[in-house]
Computed example of a mutant assay.
Amino acid sequence: MRIVDLDGLSVHYRVDGDPDGAPVVFANSLGTDLRLWDAVLPLLPKGLKFIRYDKRGHGLTQATAQPYSMGTLVRDAEQLLDHLEVRDALFVGLSIGGMIGQGLAVKRMDQVRALVISNSAAKIGVASMWQDRIDAVNRDGIESLADAVMERWFGRAFRDTPELAAWRTMLIRQAVDGYAGCSAAISGTDFYTPTSGLRLPVLGIAGSEDGSTPPDLVRETIGLVPGSKFELIRGAGHLPCVEKPEDYARILTTFIKETGHA
């Protein structure tokens, strides 16, 4: 377990793979911790340095008082990579992690040389939807939303497996301040203009059964960046790295190799 103090915030992170390898950074979705990537990492090319972290208010990272801004979450990632002396990383962000990746790529071109925007977009949902969710969590806890979230996260086949219970448990064990705070950050984010200015290799990944960021929404954002690529994983929901880790790893491995990062 690695914990670092970043400007007063205790951040939990993990480094796997080759400590001298090219860095690949993973940022998680709303309501999950860094275990989101457990099934994918062993399937990726050897010789890479894999960095995962729990964003503010998630997993073992400190929860500060809500609400959060996307700028704060981007700065958290920036400070962690500076602490680890990471430059020229391939950044893989899923859902809110994909938003963090977009913001970091715009702000710190020295830290991000290639970007994967997975099950994410430049703008997700509308403010009223997020406010309803924030109000429900603050009033009734994350448990009150858990069943609906599972339907958005996973395709029908996965929801019939015993593994669903573990992911539901992960969700409801997140801090209320962390979940609501990050929801507020998503609500206030519109990256259409800055993301359209990116000029680096970008890969978009979507799940055909994603109820949070449907494929067309992901594709629209990926289309903002010239030369970008888009991949659809059929039969998967919002977390294809969990449902279809082999497909996810194959797509990610191809991008890693095409960008010369392996």
Rank of each mutant, 00 (worst) to 15 (best):
Arg152Leu: 11
Ala127Leu: 14
His83Pro: 03
Asp88His: 11
Arg14His: 14
Trp130Ser: 06
Glu243Tyr: 08
Val74Pro: 02
Asn138Cys: 12
Ile142Ala: 07
Leu43Tyr: 01
Trp167Phe: 12
Gly178Asn: 06
Ile3Met: 13
Gly98Asp: 01
Ala262Glu: 15
Asp177Asn: 14
Thr221Val: 06
Gly235Pro: 10
Gly8Ala: 00
Arg250Ile: 02
Val106Asn: 00
Phe154Lys: 06
Asp18Tyr: 13
Phe26Tyr: 14
Gly103Arg: 01
Ala136Tyr: 01
Thr169Asn: 13
Arg234Glu: 14
Leu203Met: 14
Asp7Ala: 13
His238Ser: 08
Pro245Lys: 07
Gly223Thr: 06
Gly101Glu: 06
Val24Met: 08
Ala89Asn: 05
Leu203Cys: 10
Asp160Cys: 08
Ala114Gln: 05
Ala157Tyr: 07
Ala249Lys: 04
Gln79Met: 13
Lys49Trp: 07
Met70Arg: 03
Met150Gln: 13
Lys257Arg: 15
Tyr248Glu: 04
Gly235Ala: 12
Arg219Trp: 00
Thr259Ser: 14
Arg234Gln: 13
Ala22Leu: 06
Met99Asn: 01
Val92His: 11
Arg87His: 14
Asp16Ala: 11
Gly17Met: 10
Thr254Asn: 12
Ala114His: 05
Leu145Arg: 14
Asn28Val: 11
Leu171Cys: 09
His83Asn: 13
Thr253Tyr: 02
Ser118Gln: 12
Gly98Ile: 03
Arg14Ala: 15
Leu252Pro: 05
Gly98Glu: 03
Asp247Arg: 12
Asp18Ala: 14
Gly260Tyr: 07
Ala114Gly: 14
Ser196Arg: 13
Gly181Lys: 05
Arg152Met: 10
Lys107Tyr: 02
Leu164Asp: 01
Arg168Trp: 00
Ser196Leu: 06
Ser29Tyr: 02
Asp247Phe: 07
Gly188Asn: 12
Met99Ser: 02
Ile96Val: 15
Asn28His: 14
Thr32Asp: 01
Arg75Glu: 13
Val40Ile: 09
Trp167Glu: 04
Gln174Tyr: 04
Lys229Thr: 15
Val40Gln: 00
Val112Asp: 07
Leu30Asp: 00
Leu34Gln: 15
Ile172Asn: 02
Gly141His: 11
Phe191His: 04
Thr32Ala: 09
Leu252Glu: 10
Val242Trp: 07
Gly47Leu: 13
Asp247Gln: 15
Ala146Val: 13
Gly235Thr: 10
Cys241Arg: 03
Gly21Met: 09
Glu243Thr: 06
Gly93Leu: 06
Ile117Pro: 02
Thr259Glu: 11
Ser95Val: 04
Asp140Glu: 15
Val92Met: 04
Ile256Ala: 11
Thr221Trp: 02
Arg14Cys: 10
Ala122Gln: 02
Glu220Leu: 08
Gly103Met: 08
Gly59Pro: 05
Arg139Pro: 03
Ser118Leu: 05
Ile186Leu: 08
Thr161Trp: 05
Leu90Asn: 04
Val112Tyr: 07
Leu36Glu: 11
Ile3Gln: 13
His261Leu: 09
Gly223Gln: 06
Phe154Arg: 01
Arg113Val: 05
Leu9Gln: 07
Lys107Arg: 15
Asp110Ser: 09
Tyr68Gln: 04
Ser196Tyr: 03
Val218Asp: 02
Ala122Leu: 01
Met109Ala: 13
Phe191Pro: 00
Arg108Pro: 11
Leu232Cys: 10
Trp167Ala: 00
Gln62Cys: 00
Arg108Asp: 04
